[in-house]
Nucleic acid binder design. Sequence first.
DNA 1: TTGTAGGCGTTATCAA
DNA 2: TTGATAACGCCTACAA
Lengths: 345, 345
Amino acid sequence: MGIEMNVKGGNLTRKDIAKEAGVSPSTVSRALSGSPLIPEKTVERIRKISFRLGYSPNILARRLAANRSYQIGFALEFQEQRMRKGPIQMSYYSSILDAMIMEAFPKNYSVSIQPYKTEGDGSVRHFKELISSRHADGLVFAGLTQNSRMPFSLMENKIPFVLIGTMPSDRKILSVNVRFEDAFSEMFSTLESKKYRRIFFVGGDLAYYHAISQKKAFLEELGNSRIGLAGELKGDYSRTSGYAAAVEILKMRRKGDCVFLANDRMAAGFYRCCYERNVKIPGEIGVMGSDDDSACHNLFPELCTIRQPRYEMGRIALKMLIGTINGELAKSVLLDQSFISRASI
Amino acid sequence: MGIEMNVKGGNLTRKDIAKEAGVSPSTVSRALSGSPLIPEKTVERIRKISFRLGYSPNILARRLAANRSYQIGFALEFQEQRMRKGPIQMSYYSSILDAMIMEAFPKNYSVSIQPYKTEGDGSVRHFKELISSRHADGLVFAGLTQNSRMPFSLMENKIPFVLIGTMPSDRKILSVNVRFEDAFSEMFSTLESKKYRRIFFVGGDLAYYHAISQKKAFLEELGNSRIGLAGELKGDYSRTSGYAAAVEILKMRRKGDCVFLANDRMAAGFYRCCYERNVKIPGEIGVMGSDDDSACHNLFPELCTIRQPRYEMGRIALKMLIGTINGELAKSVLLDQSFISRASI
DNA sequence: TTGTAGGCGTTATCAA
DNA sequence: TTGATAACGCCTACAA
């Protein structure tokens, strides 16, 4: 025999199980949700019947009764220009998402991406609706620009949320961020041991906290080292900006120089320029990126980088958020990055 | 003045709006869900009041009443070995997910990832529960192995679902797949025009429909061309298997040879080997991959490849699924790939 | 054109 | 230890 399910036309409900077990619907509810009131024997019997009939409680009803969606929204901005190609830059956030899902799964939460377009206060209203309509119990934001007022408006509206990679000026706002100092310090001592003398800095888009904070820490730790600053260039995290930086840097470079780019993507642009001009890495110039972006694991020689604990950040953010939703107190978290020495220096 | 919201302690409901507007709750419902029964004037008034009070219908109640979750599950297998790093290979599916979300968004559906572990018939039961408990109205599967019985069991259990990249033997099962022939045909004529004489084939993991079908089409179209088969190697889609293939191929290669690898990842492994041995691409050997994987856009020289319309596949799969859920008839779809000529040949 | 009332399937409270 | 029963907030016949 197989499993006999849905013999009945409509939906199977508690009632059906109750009838089959000769108990009342509430007993079924209690038995199935692990209430201590019901004796083990009854629980077992009801469980068996439910399994045999293929019954599982209607989650929609449960959610309504609990007034909770058990859903976490991962708010990601989408760009209409890139419509029909990938308006959400999902691949960039995939490891964070991965972490959030795996963290949510055993807690019976699910994660859904909430795409949004920034448009003044409209988006705050949008999120407020998301919460009050119970689409989600809370939100995780990643990649907000530093000057966004969003977190404050969300706060005022009592929306449960956690920021990833954006440092709020208000302590009460929950966030998960990284510390740059230790990784840079390790990077510079490695560079010293490899006899590098000067370093170029190619920064990221300063609209983001990450870029600002990274630059600050870079310069600070550089000051503590015996490496000299060869030059400072602006980038915007794009591969083309890394390429453009390379064009300049390759002109100015001297023996014993290396370059740090604010993310691996830009480093890939740098590599490309070196490839085209037949400049040897690390022979003629050392190259370092940041993020340990898996898309850059294809570069040769392997790119030396600073790893962001993105998976860990996603995991913690979700944990904090669920805690907050359940009324626990949570505190913002700062994680350490790690310097990954590879063949490009 | 700002927006006055949630002055009331509990939740704002239809009733509150009804009272404010001097109508009954059902009128509010109808007005807000675009029923043709209510005159435009009333609708407008109710809408204004709702907006002013910050009311939006409780989606949980709506879902319960409709007996629909308005959620689509994207079923992805996770690997416990890779726990704490990214057990779901999200980045691989990110553009499909991106597409599904954007397609679902305007239709008021949301997409949530449903991680699962394959374990005999247990997973079918898991999915059946997902549906009967109304966690999701339907499921999208990507990357099932060809010999999986899953689709048939799902079918028997009347679970609405669509497969991406797995060709079911049963016509009644909905799927979105790609045709290989035209792209290969174009590839071979390009190779002819570039005076290539022989080609190596490095296949993918033959557990997948994609790999089987790809190989078949490759050999067929090769037969129609003037290019010769230099050798056939096995791969498993991993970078290391591409590297291993390279080791063999570089030994056997002659002038006028090129190689096709079943995906770009393996091609990246091939590149690495060439880099290490200082073999020039395409000077000493031409290289082609498949998928147009964005993670391989960092390769130099740019990798010639065959593009999978992954975004389009995700979009169509979701459209088909929602159609099916709503009782429409849908038909499986075969999309064309496109050959992307780049500097590596 | 609008209102009334029953139903959706739970959970939780209060009795028994 | 169990059983009624009232929420939960919306949708939708059916009635007016």
